[in-house]
């Protein structure tokens, strides 16, 4: 048995691991098999993470965080968590390869997943012009007219990035103004390849074998229109990834894992949560990192209150397995 398991490998997970490892808790971090590093792995320039005046590439930042966590003794496993049992003092985590890990404390830093539009043609045309990853797929839309759906920072970032390839990028937004930060808005407004379609929601994606257009509905007048595009990038937000715990932990009305006040304490003793999975308002790399730090400190404090017999169990097994 271990003292602590951290689930997730974004800024929250790795920061929690740095703190837990420096506290000599020898954390096991479950990084995921195909999404290790989290959302920043599909981001190019990160310009707002303090300490990088010239900006840093998302994947480079995550590699550095991982190295920092490993330097102090974090063990990283590239697998997915199949299920968890969080009841009682000993928590059980089952991995995709069938391995069962146990620990006295668990930190959930599982982040969030791209939200879908929920249209039937979205699934059908996924990989045929519908995409959620501009950095992966922008390349295939050279010289084409495409659309980005959304009005937040990620939508502006994707739209701006996609102008490297596309002849024109239509930004489709439900409202009359953007939610994105000022600097991202200004950059998009200044780009003459980006055209905004306001107060419009996407009610259909058309195309037999590949996307050939969108059906839009004006949210003010209700009028429907069609917009011919060869590709569509969906950036309408994220949903916290709570499928592992929704029967076991309290959630908020927004769908995030509920935590007590500004802490990382969930409704279950010994279970902590950090990053986007508890945050529906800020969702930044730096707020996730700060939240991961808080979770590790909360977990460290929790472990210090446990009976020595339990702690010895975590320690003993480790000594045995080390031999």
């Amino acid at each position: 048995m271990r003292q602590i398991i951290i689930i997730g490998s974004g800024p929250a997970g790795y920061t929690a691991a740095v703190y837990a490892a420096r506290a000599n808790l020898k954390p096991l971090l479950i990084a995921s098999s195909v999404e290790a590093g989290g959302e920043l792995m599909n981001t190019t320039d990160v310009e707002n993470f303090p300490g990088f005046p010239e900006g840093v590439q998302g994947p480079d930042l995550m590699t550095k965080m991982q190295e920092q966590a490993e330097r102090f003794g974090t063990e990283v496993v590239y697998d997915d968590v199949e299920s968890v049992d969080l009841t009682g003092p000993i928590k059980t985590v089952t991995l995709g390869n069938g391995d069962v890990e146990q620990a006295l404390a668990v930190i959930f830093a599982t982040g969030s997943a791209y939200r879908k539009l929920g249209l039937s043609d979205e699934e059908r045309l996924s990989g045929r012009g519908v995409s959620w990853c501009a950095t992966c797929d922008g390349f295939f839309f050279k010289g084409k007219e495409i659309a980005v759906i959304g009005g937040g920072d990620s939508a502006m970032e994707e739209a701006t990035f996609l102008t490297r390839f596309a002849s024109k990028v239509h930004v489709i937004h439900r409202k009359g103004e953007l939610r994105a930060s000022k600097i991202m808005q200004d950059r998009a407004f200044a780009n003459d390849k980006i055209e905004f379609t306001w107060n419009s929601e996407v009610v259909g994606i058309t195309g037999a074998d590949a996307v050939d257009g969108l059906t839009l509905r004006d949210t003010v007048s209700g009028t429907e229109s069609s917009l011919p595009v060869g590709g569509v990038f969906v950036a309408i937000g994220n949903d916290p990834r709570t499928h592992l715990v929704h029967q076991q932990l309290d959630l908020t009305p927004e769908g995030t894992i509920a935590v007590a006040g500004r802490s990382s304490l969930t409704s279950q003793a010994g279970v902590f949560a950090a990053g986007d999975v508890i945050d529906s308002s800020y969702r930044q790399a730096i707020t996730a990192a700060g939240s991961g730090c808080a979770a590790a400190l909360d977990a460290e404090h929790y472990l210090s209150t446990l009976p020595t017999a339990l702690l010895a169990q975590a320690g003993d097994t480790e000594l045995v397995s080390a031999n």
Binding site: S32, S33, V34, E35, D79, D80, G96, S126, G127, R128, G129, V130, S131, C133, C136, D137, F140, F141, A210, G231
Partner: peptide
Amino acid sequence: TSIPAMKVFQKGEVVKTVIGAKPK
């Protein structure tokens, strides 16, 4: 138009397409 794209070929024809990284 989206990668990773994994296409299964039999006798020169595409018989299956899987899009996106997925766990094993």
